[in-house]
Amino acid sequence: MSLLDIKSLSVSYGRIPALRDVSLSVNSGEVVALIGANGAGKTSLLKAISRLLPASGEIVLEGKSLSRAAPSDVVRAGISHVPEGRRVFREMTIDENLEMGAYSRAKEANLEREKAQIFERFPVLHERRHQMADTLSGGEQQMLAMGRAMMAKPRILLLDEPSMGLAPKLVKVIFSIIRDINKAGTTILLVEQNAAMALGVANRAYVLENGQIVMAGEAAALARDPKVSDAYLGGSMA
Rank of each mutant, 00 (worst) to 15 (best):
A37I: 01
G14C: 11
V31P: 08
E140H: 06
E112R: 04
S80Y: 07
R68M: 12
E30V: 00
S65F: 04
G217C: 13
G63M: 03
G85P: 08
P71T: 12
N182Y: 03
L45T: 12
L111G: 00
L144C: 04
L34P: 12
Y13G: 04
L166C: 05
A198P: 10
L34Q: 14
R179W: 05
P226R: 13
I174E: 05
A184R: 12
E120H: 07
E127C: 01
S72V: 15
Q212E: 15
L4D: 02
V22C: 12
R121E: 07
I94Q: 06
T43Q: 13
I6M: 06
M215Q: 14
R155N: 04
G200F: 09
A40L: 11
S44T: 14
A48Q: 12
A195L: 04
A149H: 05
Y206E: 14
L157I: 11
L19T: 14
A37D: 13
E140P: 03
L4P: 01
A18H: 11
A77W: 03
P17D: 15
I178T: 06
N210F: 10
A77F: 06
K115G: 00
N38L: 04
A202M: 09
A223M: 12
R76Y: 09
L170S: 02
G78W: 03
P54E: 13
G234D: 02
A219W: 09
L45G: 14
I35H: 09
Q117K: 11
G78N: 04
E91S: 14
D180S: 11
P54W: 10
R87I: 11
G14Q: 13
A37H: 10
R204S: 09
A149C: 11
K47N: 15
L190S: 10
A238P: 05
P162D: 10
E192D: 10
M1Q: 04
K115E: 03
A195F: 01
S2L: 00
Q142D: 07
A231K: 07
D21W: 13
V124I: 11
S229H: 10
R121F: 08
L158S: 08
F119M: 00
R155M: 06
F175E: 08
P54H: 12
G39W: 14
L24Y: 07
F89P: 02
G101I: 11
G234P: 01
S80C: 12
I188V: 10
A116N: 07
Q131C: 03
A69F: 12
R87S: 06
L136T: 04
R90D: 13
N27Y: 02
N38G: 03
D134W: 14
G147K: 10
K153F: 08
I118F: 03
D180W: 06
A152W: 08
G217F: 11
S28A: 05
E112K: 05
I177V: 13
L166E: 04
F119W: 15
V124R: 10
I59W: 00
G147L: 13
N38D: 05
V171N: 01
G138W: 12
I59D: 01
L170N: 02
G57V: 02
R224V: 07
